[in-house]
Write a protein that binds this DNA or RNA. Structure first.
Lengths: 164, 164
DNA sequence: GGTAAAACGATATAATGTACCAACTTTGTC
DNA sequence: GACAAAGTTGGTACATTATATCGTTTTACC
């Protein structure tokens, strides 16, 4: 099992998250022979600025401060589409929002834990869980191709019962 | 494990699905002291007319044929909200669409199998899967409150490798 | 029958996402 | 370098999904 929950939900040097994410992105793009253009990189940066899923129109609003000019929704959605395809970000359907993938490149399925209080989201990837989902749906006659698990509740930091 | 996959994906007497669903709905409403008004019942009927998740605006379009008058989006969304609260239907976030719940009243978490080819969706509820999701997220420090699992792939009927 | 709560009607508008086409940039080839 | 092809961006308009607001009607209950 791998997860970024500890870092996502607790105080940490977030600049390191951002730097690491951008470095991984550059590597992924180089490997895929894809171009991480300024718009794409800035959109990825904005998404990584926090551990809260970010909506497309929030990105549209925040881009001018970083680029000096307004960028229209279609361009933002194109950047998002690019980042999704390279699996550098994920879409969280119930929020219509996007979050950086902490471990791109590694084969994994999406399990997101969204805190209903602070809004942060972390990702976890667990082989045995993926396997059980595959088995369960297979028993129901379904040939699984992709999956998204969304969990809502309280994160480490927001749960009063957590010692920390 | 309980699932409606067999009936959802294969030829069957769908009128029985509809009738059963409406009967369950009446029981649920009576038990909850809630009113299954004509609009609400018609919306539920429309959602149950097929095993494909139905969008709110499809309902808006189809209602006049059943009720004789146009019903505006807010009224439809209010009916949907009511049905969601009573757990008579589910929302499938990735589709912005709604599907009838085949086993309301019984405590369960949502696992949806959406066929990418025919668009039908079935639901499965498996205790061991729910438990593993709870365990996995708990290990990551998360206190789970609700979950939605969406699986995409090929259903029984659309999978050429399925003998049937 | 009077009253409060619940439900509905109707208009307007917010939020999210896409189609389309023109212009510009990069890449590869000669 | 000149050129063509592919990829990327700019910009307008529009489609789709969802909600805010307020006035009216219906229902439940005493």
């Amino acid at each position: 099992m791998i997860s970024n929950a500890r870092s996502a939900y607790q105080v940490h040097d977030h600049q390191r998250c951002i730097d690491a994410a951008l470095n991984r992105a550059r590597q992924c793009c180089a490997a895929a022979n894809a171009r991480l253009t300024p718009i794409r990189e800035t959109v990825l940066l904005l998404i990584w600025k926090s551990h809260k899923p970010l909506g497309a129109y929030s990105i549209v609003e925040q881009l001018p401060a970083l680029t000096g000019k307004r960028i229209q929704p279609p361009s933002v959605y194109r950047a998002i589409e690019f980042l999704l395809e390279l699996r550098l970000i994920h879409r969280i359907p119930s929020l219509n929002a996007f979050i950086g993938c902490p471990f791109p490149g590694s084969e994994h399925s999406d399990v997101f834990m969204v805190c209903r209080q602070c809004g942060s989201a972390a990702e976890v990837s667990a082989d045995n869980l993926n396997q059980l989902i595959a088995e369960t749906t297979h028993k129901a006659g379904f040939q699984l191709e992709s999956q998204t698990v969304e969990v809502s509740g309280l994160c480490l930091a927001c749960n009063p019962e957590t010692p920390h």
